[in-house]
């Protein structure tokens, strides 16, 4: 029987594993341009996407007649914000100053700002991550208040239905949620209830 050292066979096995040439080219293009190149998808994905789009259009048309009221929308956004606060997801950016965040978070379609309230409450910024809230791209910023208690601030642009979001306060899952607009952005601040 033909025998070979197992180490050699393991090397041969992994040596035979290679990314596709398309992947290599895509990655090299990404490195050259700094812009991620899209993957080409098989045709059936395109067909499935078209079918899904048709179904979604139908559902959307039907749903338009049943859009949530501003208060339902606010409750939903507050619920998501409370959940996001309680989940305590890991941060991508650790900063000591808000301006640092503005420099680092280049993938947002708006510039994160520090609301006046944060300064008045003497909160200290910890860091931030990309997030979504109410279906829109948002930044989730974590602050520590004067007692070292973590608070989560979401900021996003008031586009589409979020433009109808009313200011208000909510109490959900042990979290106090405040919604307001400032400097052209929707602000949602969540803090643990005392």
């Amino acid at each position: 029987m033909n025998t070979r050292k197992i180490d050699d066979q393991i090397r041969d096995y992994y040596g035979a594993q290679k990314p596709s040439s398309e992947t290599i080219e895509r990655l090299k293009q990404t490195i050259r341009t700094g812009t991620p190149a899209r993957r080409s998808r098989p045709a059936w994905i395109a067909v499935a996407a078209v079918a899904a789009l048709a179904v979604l259009s139908f559902v959307w048309t039907a749903a338009r007649h049943r859009l949530p009221s501003p208060h339902q929308l606010a409750a939903s956004v507050a619920q998501q914000a409370a959940l996001g606060h309680n989940e305590k997801q890991e941060l991508e950016f650790h900063v000591t100053d808000s301006s640092e965040l503005q420099r680092k978070m280049k993938s947002l379609d708006f510039t994160p700002v520090e609301p006046v309230m944060i300064r008045h409450m003497n909160m200290r910024i910890v860091g931030a991550r990309y997030a979504t809230l109410g279906g829109e791209m948002a930044v989730q910023i974590v602050y520590l208040d004067a007692n070292g208690v973590p608070c989560t601030l979401y900021e996003m642009r008031p586009v589409d239905r979020l433009a109808r979001l009313p200011d208000g306060e909510h109490q959900i899952d042990g979290v106090h949620v405040r919604v307001w607009k400032e400097k052209g952005l929707v602000m949602v601040l969540t803090r643990p209830m005392a």
Binding site: T30, I31, R32, T33, G34, T35, P36, K88, Q89, E90, L91, E92, H94, K106, S107, L108, D109, V126, G127, R129, Y130, A131, T132, M137, A138, Q140, V142
Partner: peptide, 24 residues
């Protein structure tokens, strides 16, 4: 909050990330 990024709006980030005109 450990230092490793945990995702978030990954697809949106990928689409908008690293926009630069200069080729490296």
């Amino acid at each position: 909050f450990p230092g490793v990024w945990a995702g978030g709006n990954e697809s949106a980030m990928r689409m908008r990330a690293f926009e630069t005109s200069a080729e490296r």
